[in-house]
Design a binder for these strands. Structure first.
Lengths: 110, 110
DNA sequence: CAGCATCCGCTGGGATACTG
DNA sequence: CAGTATCCCAGCGGATGCTG
């Protein structure tokens, strides 16, 4: 049961999810990826893609050009996860209204 | 797009996911819940259920008895999310083998 | 039983500046 | 452009002890 936690820590990570979602449409290079995931810092983007790469969810392809170009893309494994990520994001989009309501209701009451 | 992050922070939280998964089968009381989520501390369990409650994903029902009894259950909103959580956990169970392989391959190479 | 309170170490993660 | 390196702090989260 703890291997689930191991992977959930990775997969359930907000940045990972958003990066995967961003790569849904197709490969992106570093800067574009950063644009597609608003709020992510350079550090976190680098760490996140590295993790995802180590887990075999994304590929990193560096082109020996000037200027340098690096493209990140989902692997088939990554794509199989993407379906779930989409469901999750859709769910959030559908229900975040209700959630905000509830939050307002139960707001930090002394 | 940042409201997604707001909710993903909650929903993508490992403990939240595991608590929701634990409540799938039916209501649980505090101690039972803790047993169903191995590794969670009292503090984190309390905080997590409180968050989930504030977001309207779970209900907390206290029975004025001796000894005290408190039961946590998913709301309909929580159940609608649970479907996705199940998919996610199923996916993890299905693919964690591949992921472990990849991790071994790409292990921290100097 | 179901928690709240407190102390505290650890690290996630932002800001900034520098390289190939 | 695509990162790496460093500093630094907030807050996550564990351990322990106490209450209703």
């Amino acid at each position: 049961m703890d291997f689930i936690r191991q992977v959930l820590d990775r997969v359930g990570d907000k940045w990972s999810l958003l990066v995967i979602a961003a790569l849904e449409a197709g490969p992106l290079r570093y800067t574009d990826l950063q644009r597609h995931v608003p709020g992510i810092s350079q550090r976190m983007l680098t760490l996140t893609v590295r993790q995802l790469q180590q887990d075999g969810l994304v590929t990193r392809t560096a082109y020996a050009e000037v200027p340098p170009r690096v493209e990140y893309a989902l692997t088939s494994l990554g794509r199989s996860l993407h379906h779930i990520v989409t469901s999750l994001i859709t769910w959030v989009a559908d229900h975040h209204g209700q959630i905000r309501e509830h939050r307002a209701h139960t707001a930090t009451r002394p």
